[in-house]
Simulated scan of single mutants.
Amino acid sequence: MLSIPYNPDIYILANRLPIKKYHAYLPWEADYASHPWHHYERDLCKDLPKNKPPLIYYDPSIIWGKYMPDQFLSCVLIVLKNDYTHIATDSYIYVRNDRYREKGKIN
């Protein structure tokens, strides 16, 4: 699973580990992706389309009252729109389409 931008308690509550390299993804991590050091690639925009977790917990809150998610997570929002089902309007949970059989049922 993936919880973004930053909600590490979700992994504990779900008794699950985050996908490799990403327990969160904040604005400065998106900036790092554009300028990696020592050849350590960490770019959710590249990695997520290759390895889509069954569930994404996406909280659209503004980070530090300054950073809008669509400014640094636009690539993730595209993946959410195309490949995931938002299970309820009052929820932050998105289920990958191939895991979502019919409305209200998760495989």
Rank of each mutant, 00 (worst) to 15 (best):
C75D: 05
N82F: 02
I93L: 13
Y100E: 05
Y92M: 11
V76R: 03
I93G: 01
I93P: 04
Y92T: 07
D90N: 13
R99T: 03
H86W: 09
Y100C: 09
R99N: 11
I78A: 14
D70M: 09
D83C: 07
T85K: 09
R101Q: 14
H86N: 06
T85V: 15
F72T: 10
V76Q: 00
I87T: 13
D70Y: 14
Y100Q: 05
H86D: 01
S91I: 12
I78W: 05
F72G: 05
E102Y: 15
N82T: 11
C75N: 03
V79F: 01
D98W: 02
D70E: 15
S74E: 14
D70T: 07
T89G: 10
I87Q: 03
S91Y: 06
I78L: 13
L80K: 00
H86P: 01
S91V: 12
C75L: 02
L80G: 01
R96T: 07
D70K: 14
R99L: 15
Q71P: 00
K81C: 06
N82C: 11
I78V: 13
R101D: 14
Y84D: 00
I78T: 15
S74W: 02
S74Q: 09
E102I: 14
V76C: 02
Y94D: 01
D83V: 12
L77Y: 02
T85R: 06
Y84K: 04
N82I: 06
K81T: 14
R99S: 13
D98A: 05
N97Q: 13
H86R: 04
R99F: 15
Y100M: 04
R101W: 07
N97E: 12
T85D: 06
R99C: 15
V95H: 00
S91W: 04
Y92R: 00
V76P: 00
Q71V: 07
A88E: 01
T85I: 13
C75T: 02
S74H: 10
D98P: 11
D83A: 08
L80Y: 02
S74F: 04
Y84I: 02
I93T: 11
L73W: 03
R96G: 05
N97C: 06
V76A: 01
I93Y: 08
T85W: 06
V79E: 14
D98R: 06
A88G: 09
Q71F: 08
L77P: 00
D83F: 11
E102T: 14
V79M: 04
